[in-house]
């Protein structure tokens, strides 16, 4: 029997990877993928908790998270395309239109 903490540690590793990817990869596509990774880490926590506690709410939440992720990816990628068309780059360092 695998203890629940190990699932959480796995989720934490994935989440950390995702966060660091979002924060430090200078590429919008990588940022979006890292966000997917983060969402999946969260999903893993939900499913684990649901499974260990015998409560299906967690799995339903995952269902909704996946729905959200689909929308997020769709719109995010559409924006990436629009940004690429407009600025010719998807490096956020070159997209500092709101520079103070």
């Amino acid at each position: 029997m695998v203890p629940i903490e190990h699932y959480f540690i796995l989720a934490l590793i994935m989440f950390t990877c995702g966060t660091l990817g979002v924060l430090f990869r200078r590429n919008l596509l990588f940022m979006l993928m890292s966000i997917e990774l983060m969402l999946n880490a969260v999903n893993l926590v939900f499913v684990t908790a649901s499974s260990f506690l015998g409560d299906l709410d967690g799995q339903i939440m995952v269902f909704f998270v996946i729905t959200l992720a689909a929308c997020e990816a769709g719109i995010g990628l559409a924006m990436v395309i629009a940004i690429y068309r407009r600025y010719g780059t998807i490096n956020p360092d070159f997209l500092k239109v709101l520079r103070g």
Partner: peptide
């Protein structure tokens, strides 16, 4: 492995089969 077969399949169909294809 955690017994969430439905979620697993959904994961494959939607995430792997659709979202990442978009990427």
């Amino acid at each position: 492995l955690l017994g969430a077969h439905f979620i697993a399949v959904i994961q494959v169909i939607i995430y792997a089969g659709a979202i990442l294809v978009l990427f």
